[in-house]
Design a protein around this nucleic acid. Structure first.
Lengths: 229, 229
DNA sequence: TAGTGGTCTAGACCACCCC
DNA sequence: GGGTGGTCTAGACCACTAA
């Protein structure tokens, strides 16, 4: 009876879980396992490849496949458009541009995202509402050298978030989450009292080694970020 | 000249980025693309499969492959052992058990993780230090029905986090991050003043549809969670 | 029911790199 | 040098589901 790559994957996982192959252990080679499971080598290969992607196995040519020794788990979460994040809960969505200014990148920003001096940037501050409750304050900087089209965009009805995703799709980036006390002005925007905790996300986005945008998104402390492990 | 699946993947990405295939557009079938790229169907298939995993394409049998219309980005971050997270920064790691009690699951916990009444649980509270600075307060509940071995574990030198990862590897779970104001007792443990913001992570872990453990991990506001998009 | 993706096979060649 | 994983091929059958 032939095995599917899912069955093989489950069997390998099970053996790892039973400590038949403890962390660091060397697994049999693909050919050996293919014989054992009575299947083609490619089938074993696919099962093992997926376990590598999940961080459970490590493979090296010539030296073989081992169970990962450092027990690092990977979590994944999705970052929807703020609009969709809100409307999917059934609430209505409203966006408002607070202010918009073109200028050269300030020093702290140049340091943060490695821009040359005198880089023109667009600075936007805006609010996202769920129903009539403040949901997110967006403080965004767009590199106009990387995205000159942004200069002509008004951003009074479309949020920079949404505009960028449509204009500059498929970029890579980094997301840093932390808990902060919102500064007084932002606390005002979010409708929270001063000294209250806020959830902050800093997103830096790159396209082909050029930084496109840096944003600091601040949520009231009722916000929860949910991810799957 | 044969194409590798990486080249094909890059070419497909490029066409999507150029809006040759805008969001929602139907791509040619695998056979068609295999002819165009002069390669085997399996090679195209692998390229497309990886783009599906990255959330860029959506495939349905019979109806074909489309560019994802909802622009949802996926972020990934790794959850190392607290010990490794600390020692990797060069700081020394210290663990301390605060208290340990076996009891039946309180109502809020049973509701949170769907346990039957009178389920025996182990409640642990502990601290993790980086150097001599408080790093994380761990408030953990372990389902003794799922992991009876935990009853005999002292947890005075090994943190529940580490013990569980060794004893119950490869489980699935959920991670919920939020910003909170630490309650007075936890603020004391973390060495922060009352009313200061704290970063809270709630982890629920399942193994084969049985909840193994629920933990609330609290960090001082200096903590940053970093993930890649 | 016909066409799409999902999977498997048996074989092949290659890149890498430990011995 | 030789054994490992990484990839590709040409073909096949199957599962699903939209038309």
């Amino acid at each position: 009876m032939p095995s599917s790559y899912r069955q093989i994957k489950a069997e390998l996982l099970d053996r790892i879980r039973r400590n038949i192959w403890p962390p660091g252990a060397l697994l049999p080679g693909e050919i050996h396992l293919a014989e054992e499971f009575d299947c083609a080598r490619a089938t074993v290969s696919r099962a093992m490849r997926e376990l590598v992607e999940e961080g459970i196995l490590e493979r090296k040519r010539r030296s073989g496949t081992r169970v990962t020794s450092s027990q690092v788990r990977k979590a994944q979460f999705s970052i929807p458009l703020t609009r969709e994040e809100i409307t999917s809960t059934g609430a209505s969505y409203r966006y408002a541009l607070v202010d918009r200014a073109a200028r050269t990148a300030p020093g702290w920003l140049r340091a943060q995202i490695a821009l040359p001096q005198d880089t023109p940037v667009l600075h936007l501050r805006c609010m996202h509402f769920a129903g009539n409750r403040p949901y997110q304050f967006e403080d965004r900087w767009i590199n106009l050298t990387a995205v000159p089209e942004a200069k002509a965009a008004p951003f009074n009805t479309i949020s920079p978030n949404e505009w960028l995703i449509r204009e500059v799709p498929l970029s890579k980036g980094e997301l840093v989450c932390s808990a902060t006390i919102a500064p007084p002005e932002i606390a005002d925007f979010l409708g929270i009292s001063q000294g209250e905790a806020a959830f902050s996300m800093e997103r830096t986005t790159w396209l082909d080694d050029v930084c496109v945008t840096y944003a600091r998104l601040t949520h009231p402390s009722s916000y929860k970020m949910i991810s799957q492990i």
